[in-house]
Every structure is written in structure tokens, then in C-alpha cells.
Design a protein around this nucleic acid. Sequence first.
DNA 1: AGAATCCATTAATCTACATTAAGAAATGAG
DNA 2: CTCATTTCTTAATGTAGATTAATGGATTCT
Lengths: 154, 154
Amino acid sequence: MKRIHVKKGEILQRRGELDSKVYHVVSGLLRSYTLDEKGKEHIFMFAHENWTVGDNLPKDVPCELYIDALEESDVWVLQKDIKREAQNVGAFLKRLSVLQKRIIMLMSASAIERFEHFEKTYPDIIQRVPQKMIASYLGIAPETLSKIKRERYK
Amino acid sequence: MKRIHVKKGEILQRRGELDSKVYHVVSGLLRSYTLDEKGKEHIFMFAHENWTVGDNLPKDVPCELYIDALEESDVWVLQKDIKREAQNVGAFLKRLSVLQKRIIMLMSASAIERFEHFEKTYPDIIQRVPQKMIASYLGIAPETLSKIKRERYK
DNA sequence: AGAATCCATTAATCTACATTAAGAAATGAG
DNA sequence: CTCATTTCTTAATGTAGATTAATGGATTCT
């Protein structure tokens, strides 16, 4: 846990890095964002005074967010040595990362991509709920989901 | 903390309730969802075996999610007596609730509504970042944000 | 079993928002 | 101060996905 000073525009984290840190803003303003295939930015979160940004993934999983400074900032950099806090916190982290992924998908992925991601992530749930509920989860109309699947297998 | 058995279709929680609980699924399948003004359902999350659902709000804040059972289920019902766990967990809960709200907005609100919500929630950040970044956060094109604001004040 | 409800699929039409392009305004660097 | 870059606005056109509606097949209820 150390304190750093960053200038405007400085990049603190890039997608794909391992052992990503958590950043707690003392002063200034950070932002985390993703880049889609077309190179378009999707801002995931702004973090100003007393707020925290960072992927919430285990140390051995590559992170998905870029983090940079929108203003000159003072920041605490926290290691994620989760072990000691164990179970409880681990569960929170898992939920945070699921929600994060969900937001990223809603913002940057098409209906088809969202469905394909869902298929991979929750293969069992697909069998257990009606399609219209999957559509509702994905944020698309049931008719659209139907169309997607048709085009997919033809 | 008690264990309950619920039948398919049973409603465990309605939007607006205070002192909402957290539900941990032992067997079966739950779902949480919102209803928009048009009465349309937007599923926030499926929770199957060993997963957890629930708003992550303080006891005195009305919850935003409905929760019901998609299958006959066994569930642990947990009180949210957060006090003892203090700071750390409190911060997680806050982050979870922000992400939850974000997903709900992305799924059920129009561009204008998302902007108005952002205005209210982060009045200070609006002053500090370019509009195109706010658009990127809201998941809309900068041109659309520009149009929205024009129509708004005319 | 028969009735009623729910669900998936298709097709036609509609709409919110994206994209593109171009000029005006603001910001910043030297 | 001035030129360059970034940002904002406006308008024209395009498109992914919503909406509506109709049909047939499954489920569930009595």
C-alpha cells in the first residue's frame, strides 16, 4: 500500500495486466474504461475524492479495464491480498466482477455478443428458464433473441 | 438467519420494501428484476445453487428489486446487520449498489433519463469532465447528448 | 381430456439512437 | 498572441433492435 502522485493523462493500468491494483483517490479524478473492437471508449466509472476504482479480480486473472487520470491526482495504491479477509470479501469481489462484466456487455456488445457471452457463462441456466427471461436479462426483446438464434444456425 | 422453502412463482421481496434481506440459494433458482414505468420486466440477476441475490442497501432505504422463485427452492435468508463488519464491507456494499443502479438504468431508461439521473447523482463530475466522456459513461453518442440538452431547454 | 394460459417464432413496420460530416467554439501549447 | 488540437453543435442518413400482431406448439389447471 503506497501513495502516488499522477499527472493528468497518466495511465495507471492497461487491460490485460495481471496482479492489477485497486486505486483509492485522495484528490483529483480517475476514470476506468474499456475499448471495444472498434477502438471506441466506454467509460465504466469516474472516481473522485474518496472513491475507489479497480478491477475486482483475483491476482492471476488479467484485468479488463484501463485506468487513467483525468486530473492531476493523489492516489492510494492497494494490493489485493485477499486471502486474510477470506470468504466474505471474496464473495463480494465475485459479485462486483460479475456486475462489472454485465455493464461492459450492456454498453459495448451487440445483442448477439451478449447472448453468446451468456451462453458461455451460464450454460446451465439456459436450460432452466424460458427464453423470454434470457432476453429480459440480456436487455433485448424476445423476438430479437429468436431472430439471432435463427440467423446463427443457418 | 433462517432457512426457508419456497414454491415456484413465490415472491420473496417487492420493490420499495424496507429492511430487505439477502437470499442465499441452497437449491433451486431465484431471480431478481425491476419493472419499468411501462410495466416491463428487466431481469437483473439469476441466482442458482450457492449464489446470492438481494439489494445491497442500508436497512432504512427502500429496495429496488423484486425477487421471486423460478423453481421450487431452498434458501437461506440473511439479515443485513452490517454494523459489526464495518468500514470494509460497507464500502463494498456501496459499490455494489452503484453498479446495480447503473445496470438498471442501462436496461430500462432512455438516454434522457440516464442523463438526468447522472446529473442528480454526480453534479460535481459534470463540471469536471468533457461532455463526450459523460456520453461515453451513459452509453450514448456525444451528438445524442448534445441533442438531448438542446431539446431539454427549449 | 379440454380449456386456458404461456411461450416461441415470423414478418412488417417503426423509432431511438448511431454514424458521418462539417463548421463553430473552446482550450491549450509554444 | 496565434496556430493547433480538442470539443461541441447541427443536420442528414443509416441501422439495430423495439413494437405489434398473428400463428402454432407447449404447459398448466380443473
